[in-house]
């Protein structure tokens, strides 16, 4: 563990960004990753600890012209309880229901889950399926500068993102799915939630006349980041959703993933799970 020389807990975004602009700082949100990672020596503190929890403007779920905007400090519990998410983006709600434990959901923030960029991060998979982008803010000469980046581009590697050190993740934006949208989320394991995913997957699309249009498939824990399986998506979008097409999509997904072996599962087993569970989920969509 390294020393923290300064601790700041600003109340406004502008103040927080000024701190980030003035030198290296470690951002603290819910702390559910930061605390154990720093104790285990996997993360070293920057000289300044910047607690962003006091910035109320970063909290909450709201409709915006592009769909929905979720503040970075929104906790997993708030997402779980949010009516808009429940009605319009159930895939995200399901993922939140399979996230850690009640205590952790109460503390953990969406921004923290995204910035932690674990390949197994549970919100990343549904957000990829929803086509979400992240909004990053920094202090510019004329006030706050914001930029938007598709989530898939933000996630660079395990624990690595495209965030500059002077930037704060302020929100996640996602278009709201159209009518006829169906989605599924599946986290593999024997426990309902308090479990790091050995694999997770989400599927979404618009079911119309036997076809899954605009099909989306995303996986967690089978590649260095959570990923979309675009080849498999293309296969699905090309024609009616039937067993043969599902088999081809599963094959295509298999070519996309790059699982590793660790204490939770071997690469071989992760592939088998992707096969069997993607097929199961797609069959379920097909039968629905």
């Amino acid at each position: 563990m390294t020393e923290i020389r300064d601790y700041v807990a600003p109340r406004s975004l502008a103040d927080a960004l000024r701190v980030l602009a003035s030198g290296p700082a470690t951002v603290l949100a819910g702390g559910t990753d930061l605390m154990p990672q720093s104790r285990a020596g996997r993360v070293r503190f920057a000289p300044t600890l910047l607690n962003v929890q006091g910035i109320d403007e970063l909290r909450g779920v709201a409709r915006d012209p592009g769909g929905v905007q979720i503040g970075a400090l929104t906790t997993i519990t708030s997402l779980l309880e949010d009516p808009l998410i429940r009605d319009r983006a159930p895939v995200l709600r399901t993922a939140c229901d399979h996230f850690a434990s009640s205590q952790i959901r109460n503390a953990a923030t969406l921004g923290g889950n995204i910035c932690n960029a674990s390949p197994a991060g549970d919100t990343l998979v549904p957000l990829l399926v929803l086509g979400a982008s992240v909004v990053l803010a920094s202090a510019g000469p004329e006030g706050i500068v914001k930029r938007r980046l598709p989530l898939a581009e933000f996630l660079v590697g395990p624990g690595r993102t495209a965030r500059r050190t002077d930037e704060l993740l302020v929100a996640v934006q996602a278009p709201l799915p159209p009518a006829g949208w169906v989605d599924r989320y599946l986290k593999f394991g024997a426990r309902p939630a308090l479990d790091i995913s050995a694999i997770a997957l989400a599927v979404g699309g618009t079911l119309r006349e036997g076809r899954l249009e605009d099909a989306r498939i995303a996986f967690g824990a089978v590649a260095p980041t959570a990923i979309r399986a675009s080849e498999a998506e293309r296969v699905l979008s090309e024609g009616p959703l039937d067993r043969a097409r599902i088999d081809r999509a599963v094959e295509a997904a298999d070519a996309t993933i790059r699982p590793i072996s660790d204490v939770r599962a071997s690469d071989w087993y992760r592939r088998e799970l992707v096969h069997n569970l993607l097929r199961r989920v797609l069959n379920d969509v097909c039968d629905a």
Binding site: A190, R191, L194, D195, I196, V263, R264
Partner: peptide, 11 residues
């Protein structure tokens, strides 16, 4: 306890 799994209440 993350990877040494004790049984939890739902199980």
């Amino acid at each position: 306890f993350r990877d040494y799994k004790l049984i939890t209440a739902p199980e």
